[in-house]
Amino acid sequence: MENNRRSFLKFAGISAVGLSSLSLLDVFGTGKAVASTGQSAEGIYKNEDNALTAQRWGMVVDTRKLTEEICSDMEKACHQIHNVPEFEEKRHEIKWIWETEYKHAFPEKQDEFLTERLKELPIPVFCNHCANPPCVQACPTQATFQRKDGIVLMDFHRCIGCRFCMAACPYGSRSFNFRDPRPAIKDENPKFPTRMKGVVEKCNFCAERLAVGQAPACVEASEGALIFGDLANPDSEVRALLKENYAIRRKQNLGSNPSVYYLV
């Protein structure tokens, strides 16, 4: 009796494991089958003809040209285009680009006798699109990843909302959807998706605009204070600026290698 039950349970257990691993194989199998036999695979994907491309996108922020007004315009432009919600509760706040003070943007570069101009100056901060991004290293699902052109992006479909990337980011550039963002979006841009609750989001260097040949929204609104270009191309405008001027980066001592430079 005991033996019968035991062997039955063993058999049942092994069968269950076997069956479930079969179904797992099935999942992988169909995944591949669809890609290879479905007609969708016969189509080809390509860039738009006027898409902007680079080897490593980067930004130069010319603080000499910045004003409060420009900063606020950039923030508005970005947040409107990307459907960034505005919550009354600070706890649920979401921001892609925002203005802060020098001492917050560069907490490791505290100077007792800092030049007066910098003390007062508004500094726009956003994702640094690091060449060696700690957030990408931390993400357990590759929901945040680095594209070939250096842009660090979010795949909102895949994010499980563990917020490991937010702990990993040394710049506080990431926000989490603590609740459904839709009711808090005032002027929805139908061309860009909103997000759902429970996923992380951040600046995407306007990847969706680059794809159709447009410069990032903040660059357009910056009146020349933000210059966008290919850091890998020695003839690009950003490289020319960096050759001529002394620039600093946020916490470059951490080795994350940010792609955003600030001219001071």
Binding site: E42, N47, F145
Partner: peptide, 10 residues
């Protein structure tokens, strides 16, 4: 999203 290619040709 992941490859940045927005045009599908068939």
């Amino acid at each position: 999203v992941r490859d940045g290619q927005h045009v599908y040709e068939i």
